[in-house]
């Protein structure tokens, strides 16, 4: 049952990180084009800094969050964890996921409201040109709500599964440097 849910969540998370990846690639291309035009033709692309800040950066930070959680790759300190007995380890994992649900939960809640408010007022910034920025606001609740869902799944898995330790251990990166 939870496996099915997990693969569903992974599908969505992969989708989000694909969007984040596209935004990172666009960030690179957009900035390079801006620099090139500024240098060669003295004609920078107006709004570059604003679009980088309010779209690409926001996407790159908040959309990958669910996948980071599914891969259990958030940064934590496991120095003392390794000294604990399994029962205590399990309890501290429950605490960790509980805290995560709470934090991502309040963020998801608040940023949903903020995104709606930004949409309602048609939020924009004025640089060289006016840049509409409210759509980028929605990257936050999307990332946070899915991260909440992943955290709840993990919480329940730690509570109910016998192989909870494996389910919650970090998956190695594809291109991680070889171990020594």
């Amino acid at each position: 049952m939870d496996r099915a849910i997990e693969s569903g969540l992974r599908l969505l998370s992969n989708l989000l990180i694909a969007v984040a990846g596209i935004c990172l690639a666009l960030m690179m291309v957009h900035v390079i084009a801006d620099v090139a035009l500024k240098y060669v033709a003295n004609a920078p692309i107006p709004g570059t800094a604003e679009i980088v800040a309010h779209y690409y950066m926001v996407a790159a930070v908040f959309l990958p969050l669910p996948l980071v959680e599914l891969n259990n790759r958030a940064i934590f300190v496991d120095l003392f964890y390794h000294m604990m007995r399994p029962l205590l380890q399990r309890a501290s994992m429950l605490l960790a996921y509980g805290a995560q649900i709470a934090f991502f939960g309040v963020l998801a809640w608040q940023t949903s409201h903020d995104a709606m408010a930004a949409y309602a007022k048609g939020d924009l910034v004025e640089g060289i040109i006016n840049v509409i920025i409210w759509p980028g606001r929605f990257f936050l609740p999307i990332g946070f709500w899915l991260a909440v869902a992943v955290s709840i799944l993990r919480f329940l898995q730690v509570l109910t599964r016998r192989d909870w330790a494996e389910v919650t251990s970090p998956t190695p990166g594809d291109s991680a440097p070889e171990a020594v």
Binding site: K38, N42, A43, P44, P46, A49, E50, E126, G127, I128, N130
Partner: peptide
Amino acid sequence: KGKKVRTAGAAHVRFAEFLEAVPVSV
């Protein structure tokens, strides 16, 4: 003309463009 000018606000941008300078926001 053609100078890269740091502008502060929409009105300045319009004046810089009127002068054929290049408005830059940093």
